[in-house]
Nucleic acid binder design. Sequence first.
DNA 1: TTAAGTGCAAATTCTTTGCATCATA
DNA 2: TATGATGCAAAGAATTTGCACTTAA
Lengths: 141, 141
Amino acid sequence: MQIKQLFNEIRRKGYRLTRQRMIILEALMKANTHPNADEIFQLVRKRIKNISYGTIYRNLSVLKKMGLIGELNIGKTCTRYEVNQEKHQHFICTKCDKIYNIKPQVKVEADSVQITDISVKVKDYRLEFFGICPNCRRTNK
Amino acid sequence: MQIKQLFNEIRRKGYRLTRQRMIILEALMKANTHPNADEIFQLVRKRIKNISYGTIYRNLSVLKKMGLIGELNIGKTCTRYEVNQEKHQHFICTKCDKIYNIKPQVKVEADSVQITDISVKVKDYRLEFFGICPNCRRTNK
DNA sequence: TTAAGTGCAAATTCTTTGCATCATA
DNA sequence: TATGATGCAAAGAATTTGCACTTAA
């Protein structure tokens, strides 16, 4: 999705399009990593010197509520963020903890699963892969 | 796995079998939920009135290092724990946030995945399902 | 113009750690 | 009895919040 479309979405959903909000989204859009709140803070601070953590967190929260960004929790104490592209899966390097998007998705065939003998309808699923990334494999190991 | 076997594992791996360690493991074993550190603290405190958070966290950490327990990070700020049964998947209710174990595992066929055009070997994966649990579906909706 | 959003700083929540003491092996 | 583990309290991360001021609509 283009950044302009994201901006329109914000207005369409009844939120204001503030300078801070735009720059946070742009930063997330440009980052090809999956930054955490602090990394986003650092990126945004390059353009708004007195941005505050409160603003970062409040915006991440509303952007997530709007469904414009997604949140990743991978055994770290801090949460990582990404702009919602079409739904996709991640590969997490167990050496360097970097998170990569994987490109052709692995399909999971499960409309329902069994919990305590009851069949439950599955609305969504999350699939993550772990291993050593090419970079860590190359760099000696 | 039986609790006695878990206790033996602790000794076998060169750690001491302390009263606190045993009771923490027992609490995790009995809980059919996936408690977080605070819930474990509350459970253990019933039997050891002056147990400390430090002990809880240190023990969760070593038990995890030993591979006796597992850690779940599901979009919450706090981590949840479980005794490692054979590897299994979870169903998370998006209404009440309860985590259920699913019984026949869903098989994922992927020895490798593609990241930025490079094929990477998959060592492990994590698959979680989301939906409304039977309890929330029943209770009105 | 007005209410949503911001900056700031203080408060919360979750987790880790230093140190004197305790108790398992 | 030696040293790994504990309790306690303080420190550290990560995140949230109250409030006066600012700004998008």
